[in-house]
């Protein structure tokens, strides 16, 4: 091995620092670009639609007169559908995640299931709509009900919930499990008293973010035949419904310009609902984290 001579020592510090700075600014620019688009989008929508939002707008049925028209059925439909979707998808999603993480032995079957769940998360939402139309609306004869819509949406977000819940369960240290088992806990006691509480914040965050995606989805609901004009309140899970994105889409496509501002108002309401969902995720996470 040849010894290095002193004149070969050239750390080129100046150049390295420069590259470092350039890279840092590049990342700042990419972040700023994304934020800028978001800010422009939101200010534009708020500027056009904020004036439309008042109690009347939130509590009136749709109408052919822009001044009379409101979001009532769409808002109620969205709340109904999201509540039902949460009730259906949360137990199934978390249950599957617990099985895959805590019970299932390593096997080819488990790997096969994992790959498929990951694939399902990438399937276009219209495909779920078609499945929902065939399975729930026609075969199970649920009609174009809130229940059929919620089941379809549950299918759509289940892969996301399962993947997020598994991540949360995997983040629980093995030592906690071993500690519980060493104290004589059964597997079920170990999962219920140790693993689940520790994983709950992550599980809830994943579930609520998945539900937020369901709030904004239109395609699968249009496919199963959710309606656009409804002037009565849904009075149960078997009733007909419409949701915010469909109402917005309907207003955007009308020729009269006043409906375009109503649509902007509807978008603002949809954004607020989404924001509330995300806020709920943060609050829940903090609450359970403090306890854990």
């Amino acid at each position: 091995m040849r010894a290095l001579r002193a004149d070969q020592w050239n750390p080129r510090m100046g150049r390295r620092r420069r590259y470092g700075a350039i890279f840092r600014y590049a990342t700042i620019v990419s972040t700023a670009l994304g934020l800028l688009v978001l800010v422009v989008l939101i200010t534009d929508v708020v500027r056009r639609g904020a004036g439309e939002i008042d109690l009347h707008f939130l509590t009136s049925f749709p109408s052919r007169f822009p001044v009379k028209a409101g979001l009532r059925t769409a808002l109620l439909g969205t709340f109904w559908m999201i509540a039902m979707t949460a009730l259906i998808s949360f137990p199934i999603g978390v249950g599957s995640a617990i099985y895959l993480e805590e019970y299932a032995p390593e096997s080819r079957l488990k790997r096969f299931i994992q790959i498929n769940i990951a694939n399902l998360a990438g399937v276009p939402s219209v495909v779920y709509g078609l499945l929902g139309l065939g399975l729930f609306v026609r075969n199970l004869a649920l009609g174009r009900s809130i229940l059929a819509g919620s089941l379809t949406m549950s299918l759509l977000i289940l892969p996301i919930i399962i993947v997020a819940s598994r991540e949360a369960l995997r983040a629980v240290p093995v030592s906690l499990r071993e500690g519980a088992l060493a104290l004589g806990a059964s597997r079920w006691q170990m999962v219920r008293r140790t693993v689940l509480p520790a994983a709950l914040p992550g599980v809830l965050t994943g579930t609520i973010l998945a539900l937020a995606r369901a709030i904004g989805e239109t395609a699968p609901l249009i496919t199963i035949g959710a309606l656009t004009y409804i002037a009565f309140d849904p009075n149960g899970p078997m009733d007909l419904f419409t949701v915010l994105p469909i109402q917005i889409f309907n207003w955007v496509s009308l020729p009269q310009k006043e409906f375009a501002s109503l649509a902007a108002g509807g978008i603002v309401v949809l954004l607020v609902v989404l924001l509330l969902a995300n806020l709920a995720a943060v609050v829940l996470r903090n609450r359970f984290e403090r306890r854990g």
């Binding site: 049925f61 109408s63 309606l227 656009t228 002037a231 009565f232």
Partner: peptide, 18 residues
């Protein structure tokens, strides 16, 4: 449908656009 439901209370006439 809007006018009809205004004149006949309790009537339910939803309209879809597929």
């Amino acid at each position: 449908a809007e006018e009809f439901q205004g004149s006949f209370r309790g009537a339910r006439v939803p309209v879809g656009v597929s």
